[in-house]
Simulated assay, not measured.
Amino acid sequence: MFAFLASWVRPAMNAMMSKEWQGQERLPRGTGIIVCPNHVTEIDPIVVAHFLYNQDIMPHFMAKASLFKVPVIGSILRIIRQVPVERSSAGANRSLEAARDALADGGGIIIYPEGTLTRDPDMWPMKGRTGAARLALQTGAPVVPIAQWGAHEFFPRYAKRFYPFPRKRSRLLVGDPVDLSEFRGAPLTRTTLDAATDRILDAITELLAELRGEQAPAERWNPALQQQERLGREPRDVESRESRTREQGPGEAQPGAKP
């Protein structure tokens, strides 16, 4: 099923955007990995899945359990072995076991540490959630940071349509696995998980700064301090900024985008 879907998606992605991938040699081989990318547009999962599939790594996403109950979509998600995320204690244990099975098969579990599209006005990684760090410390799987940039020009954050012309370029940079050794074996307290999460986000931010050729902000954006809802679409300040950007026209790059 995944090969069938990829046979349609890969040619479409190649037609829509050129791609520049760097750092593939840093991907651990012969083991399952936790892949942690930055998140700037709704099509990021397709970009990252395309990259991993081309590296012969089966991509698995942590998806809301409710999606598995949707007719047809739920069946497809189960067949291609995506991982349902449930909120109950028993459900969380089932999710962890499903993730462990995917890792044992040598797949890549893709987790966005930010938990949703970044709320940062300039699209730098914002304050994260602890799910990726928790899974890494519970399983011992290596965490691979990835920065990607350019897909947001094709489909801007919170946009309602694509901007295919002129043809955009999707760029992706893989970093070395994040060193979490000092946290392994420690109790999974909030302090430990927050520190491990910050370590992961620091690695992603450093890669993104290299990819963009810009200096990252000294402090990470925190939605709570900005009176923003962490989840949901289009916080007011982000919405107004994105609306102004889209009014520039379909052929113009987003603020901060490297030509």
Rank of each mutant, 00 (worst) to 15 (best):
A6C: 07
R10D: 06
M13D: 08
A15C: 13
M17G: 08
M17A: 14
S18R: 15
Q22M: 14
G23Q: 05
L27E: 09
R29D: 10
G30S: 05
G32L: 02
I33E: 04
I33A: 08
V35D: 02
P37H: 12
P37K: 09
P37G: 10
N38F: 13
N38S: 12
H39I: 09
V40I: 15
T41L: 09
I43S: 10
D44A: 07
P45S: 07
V48S: 02
A49H: 14
F51I: 07
Y53I: 02
A63N: 06
S66I: 06
S66L: 09
F68Y: 12
V70D: 02
G74K: 11
V83R: 06
P84M: 07
V85S: 12
E86A: 15
A90L: 11
A92P: 07
R94V: 08
A99S: 14
R100H: 09
A102I: 10
I110Q: 11
I110E: 08
I110L: 14
Y112R: 05
P113R: 11
P113A: 15
P113N: 13
E114Q: 15
R119G: 10
M123S: 11
P125I: 13
G128D: 11
R129F: 11
A136R: 12
T139K: 01
P142Y: 07
V144I: 12
V144H: 09
I146T: 01
W149D: 14
E153R: 06
E153K: 03
F154M: 01
F154C: 01
R157D: 00
A159F: 00
R161M: 01
F162V: 11
P164T: 01
K168Q: 06
R169M: 01
D176Q: 12
L180N: 06
S181D: 04
G185V: 07
A186R: 14
P187L: 08
P187T: 02
T192L: 04
T192C: 05
A196D: 01
A196Y: 02
T197E: 03
D198K: 06
D198Q: 04
A203S: 12
E206R: 04
E210K: 15
L211Y: 09
G213V: 03
E214W: 00
Q215V: 09
A216N: 00
A216C: 02
P217D: 08
E219W: 02
W221A: 15
W221F: 15
W221V: 10
P223L: 07
Q226G: 01
Q227R: 13
E229F: 09
L231R: 06
G232S: 03
R233K: 11
E234N: 08
P235N: 12
R236T: 03
E239C: 08
S240L: 13
R244W: 13
G249D: 05
P250C: 04
P250G: 14
G256V: 00
A257I: 02
A257W: 00
P259C: 05
